[in-house]
Every structure is written in C-alpha cells, then in structure tokens.
Design a protein around this nucleic acid. Sequence first.
DNA 1: ATGAAAGCGCTAACAT
DNA 2: ATGTTAGCGCTTTCAT
Lengths: 334, 334
Amino acid sequence: MNGPAQRRITIKEVAEAAGVGVATVSRVLSGGSASAETREKVLAAAARLDYRPSALGRNLRRQRTGGIGLLVPDITDSFYARLADGVLSCARSYGEPVTVGVTGDDPEREAELIGTLIEQSMDRLIAVPSGDGDMWAPALRAGLNVVFADRRVRGDVPSVVPDDRAGVLTAVEYLAGLGHRKIAYLGRHAQSQRVAAFTAALDSLGLPADRDLVVHARSSRDSAYAAAAGLLQHRPDVTAVIAGGNVLGEAAVLAARELDVRIPRDVSLIMFDDVPWAELCSPPLTVIAQPAQDIGYRAAELVLRQGRRPPTVTLPTQLVVRASCGPRVASPRR
Amino acid sequence: MNGPAQRRITIKEVAEAAGVGVATVSRVLSGGSASAETREKVLAAAARLDYRPSALGRNLRRQRTGGIGLLVPDITDSFYARLADGVLSCARSYGEPVTVGVTGDDPEREAELIGTLIEQSMDRLIAVPSGDGDMWAPALRAGLNVVFADRRVRGDVPSVVPDDRAGVLTAVEYLAGLGHRKIAYLGRHAQSQRVAAFTAALDSLGLPADRDLVVHARSSRDSAYAAAAGLLQHRPDVTAVIAGGNVLGEAAVLAARELDVRIPRDVSLIMFDDVPWAELCSPPLTVIAQPAQDIGYRAAELVLRQGRRPPTVTLPTQLVVRASCGPRVASPRR
DNA sequence: ATGAAAGCGCTAACAT
DNA sequence: ATGTTAGCGCTTTCAT
C-alpha cells in the first residue's frame, strides 16, 4: 500500500508561519509588491513547509484553469503520437498540464470528451477534429479557446495543418513523371482538403480522375486493410497508390503481399507521413514527410499565447524518395 | 477568432430555475434521495439551462480530483503509446480525465511533472517510473495513489508489468536451441528485472555470461543506435542479440544494415515488443510480444478501484517467431 | 506595503 | 425530503 496521506499545506499555514496575512503570501508568490524583508520571510516559510499552491483554489477563484485539452483520433498512430509529443513538449515549457482524450475519429465520442473538458473548466483545447463545423459550436460557445491541428474545419477556428495541397501535388507529379496514369488515393473521405487537392492534381496533369480512384477508409487498421485490399483486387488498372497516412500505408504493404502484388514492380506506393519503419520496410517506402511534432508544438504555442492568432498556419511537407515507386510497366498488372 | 465566451451556468441558477435549494440540486444530480416530483423539476431545469457541474467547485470541496495522471518516458514510442491508450480507454469508461506527461526517462523531469500533478490536486497517478525508490517518497507522502506500469521499483507500490523473466528466458532458450552461445542483451541497464533474468537464463543454460554481454542504451533513438552499432562492431563473437524494446530493435536493424551485418545470417535478432512494422521489416522480426495496451488498462483499473490492490500484476509475454533468427553459423562472423 | 474579508461553485453537515 | 449554511484554498478588491 501507499504510505499514509499527509494533509496538504495551505496558504493560511504559510501566512501564520511567516507571521503575515494570507494576501501577502499570495502576492509574494505571484510576484506582487512586497518589502524585501516580508518577501524573504514568506519565501522562507513556504520553502520550509514545502508549500504547493493548490491549483484548485486558484482556478476556482480565477475562473479558468490554464491547462490544455488535447483530442486526437488515435494515440497509437505514430503521427498523432508525434503531434501529441509536440503539444506536450511546448506545454511543459509553460508548466501547463495537458489532458489527453482519444476520439477514435468518432464525433460522438469527441463531443463527450469535450463535455468532460468543459466540466473541468479547461479553457484551451487543441483538437484533430472528427466532427464537422457545427459540432464545434457548443465548445466555442462554452468559451473554449480552440485550435485545430492537422485538419481544418470550415469556420473561423485557427488551425495548424500540413501543406496537403503541395504534398499531394508533389506525390502525383512524381508518380506521373514515372509514367503512371491511373493513380489512386487511399484515405479518409472526410479529409476533403486532400481529396480535392488530389483530383485537382490529376486534372492539372491531364490524368483520368474517376471518382473510384479515391478510396475511403476509416482510420482503424482493419478498415485500412479492407480498403487497401479492395483497391488492389478490383482495380488492376491502377498502377500507383498514394496512402493517406502511415496506417493506410502499412495496410497497403500488407495487402499487396497477401495478394502477391509486388511493390514497386506491380504497383508503386507513396505513403503520407514518414515513420521510422518506412526505411526498414521491404521495400523502403517513398513518403511525403509531415512535420507532426511541429504541428503539435505550433498549435500549443497558438493556444497558449493569448494574443490574437492567425487563422491558419500551414507547414511544409517533403517528398522522401526511397524504393517503393518505379516506372509504370507497359502492360496492366496480371 | 472564437465566438464570444458565455458565462457558465451555476448550480445556484439551476436551483432558482427549478424553485428548489442548491443542496437539492446537488443531491438529485448525484443520485441522492429526492421526491420524484422534485427530481423531475431539477432535471428539467438542468437540461433546459444545459447545466454542467463545475469540476473545480466539486473538487475543491471534496478535496480530490478523481483525474488520473499518466507519466511515460516517450509517447512517441509505440509501446508507451499503446500503454497510454489502455489507460485512456479504461479512464474513458469511468469518465475520468487523464493528464499525460512525458518524462524522457529523466528522474528530474519526472519529479517536476509530479510536482505539477500535485499542484493540480491530482490524486491518482500511473507511471512508468524513471527514478528509483526514494524518488517516489514525496509523491506518496503527498497522498498520491500511485500504480507503476511496465517497470517495478523497490518499495510497496502496486505494479502492472509484463513477465520479463519468462520473456527473456523464452528468448534465450529459443536462441540457445538454435545453437547460439554468445547472446547479448541490448537495453536499459536500469531495467534490472530483465537484466537479472537475462544473466540468470544464460547461467541456467550453461552459456557464458560476461558482463559485457549486456549493453546499455538510453531510450532515445540516437543512444539506441550508438549502442547497437557499438555492440555489432566490437563483439564479432556475438551471434545473437536480444533488443529490449522496439526502438532498440529498430536501431539494431539499422546498425546491422549500415555495418553490412546480415540478419539472420550473421546475427540473429529478437526484439522485445511486437509492433505492426515488425512484420513489414526485412527480414520480418521475431519478437517477444508484450501486452502494452493491457498493461495500461489494468493499471488504470487498479488506480481507479479504491479497494485494496494486489502488490503486483504480471502479464504474460509471447514469442512470435518470424524470420530474424537462424542457426548459429560454425565460424564467427567476419 | 499589508491585512481583512468577500466570494469563485460546489458538497455535506445540520436543521427543519 | 428539503433548505440553510459553512467552508474547501485561493486571489482580489478595499481599507488601512
């Protein structure tokens, strides 16, 4: 068992020990004005008693918490883990605690978690939004200071996002340069930014852009695998695929192996998000690297700085060529 | 900008709206006794006003928060991310918020984060401890309800850990069965459970167990790579290595490639912790799978259930044979 | 420069 | 069964 609990020292006890009033203790500890002598007495007493101001008392009085809420679809996904790491890293430098919730990309769960955060009087929130614009109205009305990360939502909430448009365009151009004409995109439909960018890129290069070329998958591993396998099976004319995230990429590699589709001989693969294993994979995966940690860090800065904030920050992505893309073979696969 | 903040509804307003006293509202909302009629009036008023009880007020009054603090070395490491996911998942079912901190395996940072948690009056803490036993005395004295996860520390804090002893033994036996005699362990020195189990396993099989066969690495990727490369370079007599975690395993694969050491021809590799990419790796990695998510879940159960808790829960590991281990070759490498 | 006192939203003890 | 009230620890007027 854990040792016996020990009652917490309060500001009142420090005041008594220092022979001053509680207000003076409060002032000294928060850098207010006080005579050098008093200051010293207070500090000494506080140190001696190992006094820790109670955030509870302070927050209740000030009607705000300072803490940060962070909502991600899946903390197990390397991308969101790195994003969270960025938030945590920035928050730590401000000494602010961050409360993490996993939404599973489910708007309902998201709403529930927002409820919990509001109950905690959390006043800052960084979220990778699952729901659409309207879903967020209640949170904003509750006075939450919200910043979106990774995904935008229509409305005027500040966002920090990767440059999806440029990333997709780079990928498509690279693939087109290799001779590919039937290129598919595997990702969340809802990620309309990217899907739009994808079809736009296809158009601008004069490539066919039928609707079936973008394949929807939810973010779970199972869903990703099913989508990847379906694509590979039913569309032998597709010679290149862009996976919209590392989970999708992993699923694509797995499905390809299972179906005996060779990468890059039979189909070329570009994965969004560079992860450590991309290099270890066989073949090493060509990727569009995204600054996940940076996205989180910047979002935290935005939400912590009280000043007015720019509507959207877009961070660059980068094509890292490895070995999962090859020239289009003349004949369709199989 | 986010919309205009809206003042929060308080219990007093609900009481007025329902035409009852505040205590009644409190009782109804927390399942106390009340007449059906009153209950209905209160519930209606609360719903109509969209009342959210303030956790701040409640916690201050009750002198505890209910929330859970979670301290992990690195949220970017798949193992800890899955562990965190387990905690989050369990906590969500109780509606409890969890505040996450990253220690970087640094006892000092850990102490700092504990301080923040105490300031928040957080009373439950799940930690993958970095510091040793003494470090934790202050936290326990502060009345924190602590459960350790993944690692034990001497003292009487309840812990949920993988069965390291069995895992290591299985790995060593498997390797010995393949003919290997010089087996190295790559991991945190501090992880004395495993290191002890490793040397014990070596002994019990009559294998040489010189001290240099366990190689220390901190948990950062750089440190892991340096350690792996050092081992591979300076100990050509070693024909098999056990990597103590997925980051170490990744480093070992990378270092081996760099040094042109072939896996499994030149050296066999077993990695602790099964991760999705282990299968995608070339060669697919043989691993000791650890129930990371379960460890987190169970730890959360322990810390949430107020009842008396068993001192230690040990969860089984499992050998998953893939293709990174082979028979020892007759002649030493190189 | 410092202290006294009000009050943040809530729960629990006590009174009715 | 329900209302009244004290008080959790703190910050912030308002006096002094």
